[in-house]
């Protein structure tokens, strides 16, 4: 078990209701996990708790069995192991060019220059960004920015990669590319957890689905088991993949 949430609650400052209410969830290593739920159910909050960006107002978050500590060295260590890709890649791309942005996290880790050069070169090839190495980040398309944001995290070799709505605003071709990319990342040993509204993507890609509703986990199982409960899913504002509609 990589990460565990034990009765975790979180309320944003100045909001009357907590966003997460006594949520319990375990993320096992090696999984291809998808988290689904209505807007506002707490998926983004869950991921940010996992990355140590927020501290829970109740409950415990554990990494490798140990409760998270929120001092800077512990958080830096956690963020090497747990990579989080935001829904809006613009918020995570901080350098001027693609190559510099890839190197940013590695420089923060204090790695030797030779290793940085090697990892950046490899990442540029793996993520098909080699032609854009010296290109300004401002001029990338959304799909390219998304690819770069994912590369920025994968280059740190995390054990757990969290992606917040990676399929948002992508066209079908880009979604297929993302599917291949995430499969490759997961095959290399990184556990991948993503939040998405794209149920077809979930059905095709995930081997474990977590369903959230109003700040809690209401169901978790393999995709076939989850999507067989159509009525329950519809009651909580979700549905079933179009693929399953077509089959019926």
């Amino acid at each position: 078990m990589l990460m565990a949430f034990e009765q975790v609650s979180y309320a944003y400052p100045c909001t009357p209701k907590p966003t997460l209410r006594g949520l319990s969830l375990e993320i096992a290593a090696g999984r291809r996990c998808a988290v689904i739920g209505q807007n506002g159910c707490g998926k983004t909050t869950l991921f940010r708790l996992a990355n140590g960006l927020y501290q829970p107002t109740g409950g415990i978050v554990r990494w490798g069995g140990t409760p998270l500590r929120y001092d800077r060295p512990s958080l830096n260590h956690l963020r090497q192991q747990v990579g989080l890709v935001f829904q809006d890649p613009e918020q995570q791309l901080v350098a001027a060019t693609v190559e510099e942005d890839l190197s940013y996290g590695l420089c923060n880790l204090g790695l030797p220059e030779a290793e940085i050069a090697q990892r950046v070169k490899q990442s540029l090839e793996d993520f098909e960004l080699a032609d854009l190495a010296d290109f300004p980040v401002n001029y990338l398309s959304l799909g390219q920015k998304r690819r770069l944001a994912i590369a920025d995290m994968v280059i740190l070799h995390p054990r757990l990669l969290l992606l917040d709505e990676p399929t948002a605003y992508l066209d079908p071709g880009q979604v297929r590319n993302l599917h291949r990319l995430l499969t490759t990342i997961q095959a290399s040993g990184t556990t991948v957890v993503l939040a998405t509204h794209d149920l077809d993507f979930v059905y095709n890609w995930a081997d474990w689905v977590v369903v959230m509703h109003q700040g809690q986990v209401v169901m978790e199982d393999n995709p076939d088991a989850i999507f067989s409960q159509k009525r329950t899913l519809e009651m909580i504002g979700l549905g079933i993949p179009n693929l399953l509609h077509t089959r019926k």
């Binding site: 963020r79 090497q80 935001f86 918020q91 510099e100 190197s103 420089c107 010296d134 920025d152």
Partner: peptide, 16 residues
């Protein structure tokens, strides 16, 4: 938050 998630310390160090 984006900077924090990428291990920002107190400098924006990059390589090229």
């Amino acid at each position: 938050l984006g900077l924090a998630s990428r291990g920002y310390g107190s400098e924006l160090r990059v390589w090229h």
